[in-house]
Design a protein around this nucleic acid. Structure first.
Lengths: 207, 207
DNA sequence: TTAAAAATCACCCACACGGGTGATGCCAAA
DNA sequence: TTTGGCATCACCCGTGTGGGTGATTTTTAA
């Protein structure tokens, strides 16, 4: 696998250089170093990285948190804050843009590296399974009498938008049997149409 | 608001004490300090905290990563790793349990605190909006001709499991009009049943 | 002002779906 | 051995939903 491209946004050249060298020695590719917000925005657009390390204070109109907001809106890649400031005010503003991490200077290089790896890993898996799979456990939590395993199989198909006849075909049972199962399912789930079943399941999986 | 209860799992008493005092001075309540995995498991069950700081190496059968796996399965609260180890092997194991953060010792106290706050904040908002609201923007990204605003209103109702007659009633239009709108919607979304529409929207919102 | 797009409505038809009822065979627990 | 849960199937009926067609009014943009 090719190395992950990381953009460093940091106005102090010495620190930026240090980070760059350190990342380069540890299986990351530094796509660029941006010393101010303009450079950062440009880099984000024309040479989009896989992750970003963001200093918050850049003594310009736009600060690191603004850049983060832009990333969330337009690019959707993970980012870490790396900053000297951890006062309540700054932290509260930072919370709003949902950073993958927040590291306060002076920082432990290993912490930076580990945080970066975790951020990338978490971000990737979030995007792949933000489609929560149905969990029989979670469903039964809401039920008086739990679903049988067969019923759960059918529920999964319904949840994926499969029609009764299709379910019958790929489950090797009669369409009538599918209907019979659905009746018990509706009874247990206290529902009466397949689309309301889907909506209910979506809600239950979300929490 | 009452203070967040944090469990500290750390086998070195001096470090554990230091963290405890520091958190206590910064608006967190330390629900307990667990010096080994048994104590940790017990605390998690009988005095469930809002977040956990986990050392990985606890020189017992069960280590911090195992505890993390347990938390994910049974409790669902955010946790941070705080450890001396950041070798590839340990880190890869840690990635699998999706920690909110990974801090390597010796650590900057402010980093710990900021990471904890970010972790709790991110975790809370994840749980509240894991039910993604429909976004007209995201839908239209997939369409040749975009939805009109009226159509989008109806799509939202369908997505919430509302029947045609109910939609008609609460939108003050004729059931026939609802059907007409749905026809255009199905045409644009390339679908032909309301439940497949719901499934498709769910998929599109997820990424 | 005028043409195009959007929103509204009606009627017909076909069918997938859901509710009601009843039945059979299997298997495990009592 | 028997009871009860589970999975399987069938038939009937009513209706909500979707497809086809055509129309009028309102709003928006040219």
């Amino acid at each position: 696998m090719s190395r992950f491209k990381v953009l460093i946004v940091e106005d102090e050249p010495v620190i930026a250089e240090n980070i760059s060298i350190y990342l380069d020695n540890n299986d990351f590719e530094v796509s660029a170093i941006a010393y101010d917000s303009d450079e950062a925005m440009e880099e984000l657009q024309k040479n989009t990285p896989d992750a970003v390390i963001l200093d918050i204070n850049l003594d310009s109109e736009i600060d690191g948190i603004d850049i983060a907001a832009y990333i969330n809106k337009e690019i959707q890649i993970p980012f870490l804050f790396l900053t000297s400031y951890s006062d309540k005010n700054t932290l509260d503003r930072a919370k709003a843009v949902k950073p993958s991490g927040y590291i306060v200077k002076p920082f432990n290089e290993k912490t930076l590296l580990a945080s970066l790896e975790i951020a990338i890993s978490n971000f990737a898996s979030e995007n792949n399974q933000l489609q929560p799979r149905l969990s029989m456990e979670k469903i039964n939590r809401h039920l008086l009498s739990p679903l049988t395993s067969r019923e759960f199989e059918l529920v999964q198909l319904v949840y994926d938008g499969v029609s009764n006849s299709q379910i019958a075909a790929q489950s090797f049972i009669s369409p009538n049997t599918v209907k019979t199962h659905l009746k018990s399912i509706y009874l247990k789930l206290d529902t009466n149409t397949r689309y309301r079943l889907i909506v209910r399941l979506r809600e239950w999986m979300a929490k």
